[in-house]
Write a protein that binds this DNA or RNA. Sequence first.
DNA 1: TCTATCTGTGTATACCATACTCAATAACTG
DNA 2: CAGTTATTGAGTATGGTATACACAGATAGA
Lengths: 245, 245
Amino acid sequence: MAAWGAEAPPRPGPRPRLSIGDLAKAGVALADELGLEAVTMAKVADRVGFTPMSLYRYVGSKDELIQLMFDEMGRDLGVSAERAHGWRDGLESLAHALADRYTEHPWAVDVPIAGVPTMPSQVAVMEYGLELLVPEGLEPGEALGVLQLVAGFVRSHSALVRDITRAATPGAALSPFSAASSRLADLVDPAVMPRVAEAARLGLLSPPAPDSAAADEELDDLRFGLDRILDGVEVFIERRHTGQV
Amino acid sequence: MAAWGAEAPPRPGPRPRLSIGDLAKAGVALADELGLEAVTMAKVADRVGFTPMSLYRYVGSKDELIQLMFDEMGRDLGVSAERAHGWRDGLESLAHALADRYTEHPWAVDVPIAGVPTMPSQVAVMEYGLELLVPEGLEPGEALGVLQLVAGFVRSHSALVRDITRAATPGAALSPFSAASSRLADLVDPAVMPRVAEAARLGLLSPPAPDSAAADEELDDLRFGLDRILDGVEVFIERRHTGQV
DNA sequence: TCTATCTGTGTATACCATACTCAATAACTG
DNA sequence: CAGTTATTGAGTATGGTATACACAGATAGA
């Protein structure tokens, strides 16, 4: 796979003027500025000073380019198992590092998950997680399951945060569906769905006011879910240590 | 919002020959047969015996149609809080019902998450979850957090299962990336990533052989993640009951 | 120097979402 | 019952999209 950067032996013909990484970086920059839907072969080509069709010398399809962009944005998370104070601290660092990346690159939550993780940055996360969890007695398969749990939660949480942020940002194009969330209290029949109606009344289903506390709330939500997951993992590790499972 | 089916008062002009639900159902059927990328306005129109442009009398955009399809596929999960034996059993039933739906409609994991859940089927899930968890002492916001955890996990797990299944199915169009997973063992340098290399050697990163045990493995993985989450929630509920939090 | 091979370009195609216009339709008004 | 008017579904058109294909120039090895 190209993303793993096998070194090319000397060949006849002109040397490529780009690398796959250049292409991925250009795509990331474009998506950062204008969103994922703005990433077209033509615009990426323009950004690197190429014609659209030349990109196909580097990637087999646009989908492949998108996957490379996702890998690019997940590189070098700055976590290391040696520096972590135990598995729990390590997983928390990972979760926050991932969440930060999603915040920096909001489009990344729109990139479809393409099968079992095989891109370098994802594999690096796997190695990290295995280093944290296998010494605690987890089987590799179990450790990967925990990792999937954490990474998946951060992703879905980040997606929610992004959409809420977008809906609460005046001037942003809000879909007809996010627009409806503020009216959800009117749509839900309290007789049929009393608890949702109450939650809507409490404002839990509307975008929060864009005050300074919004970021804190998002962080709280991340922590809440993460704490539940890690509590569950802790229970499992305890049981494994005491031979109950 | 149209999906909530406000009844139309008598109006001049021809009566609409379709309903939004018809359109959503047609889209679902199409996606079931040919995948989400096959869902185009033209093909859906063809299926209901309309011209492409007529669909815009019912939906504002293709994205809106896709959201309606997602709502359609999540309707009537067949769970009820009254029938559940406690919150944990109730959440397990929900998770399995959702997983079954994703299995029946694999394209659903490709539907982008559009903000805070506001579609009827999603709101029904919310009501269900609140009924299960609020009596245990959780705040509505906490209960929604737990629900997001469960639903998000089932979704990401289902995505993985679908991609693995697709990769293991001979004849299916497998992306260059899923194709690479079988070669991951060759790509990873054991000196740099010893634990991933070992996991690859154990076959944990390759699609499983398409034997009869595959379905069981998938179910095991679902159970594993779900058990961790619910263990974590259980710890939280215990603490709440004993006033620790 | 010759040759095989690779790069980036130019051109062309098929598909797609969707804007705009219009004739036919059917409820409401008198 | 006749006229008015809003609405439906069809027809036509447009701009953007990914990508197939063929070619001219460039370059490393013989």
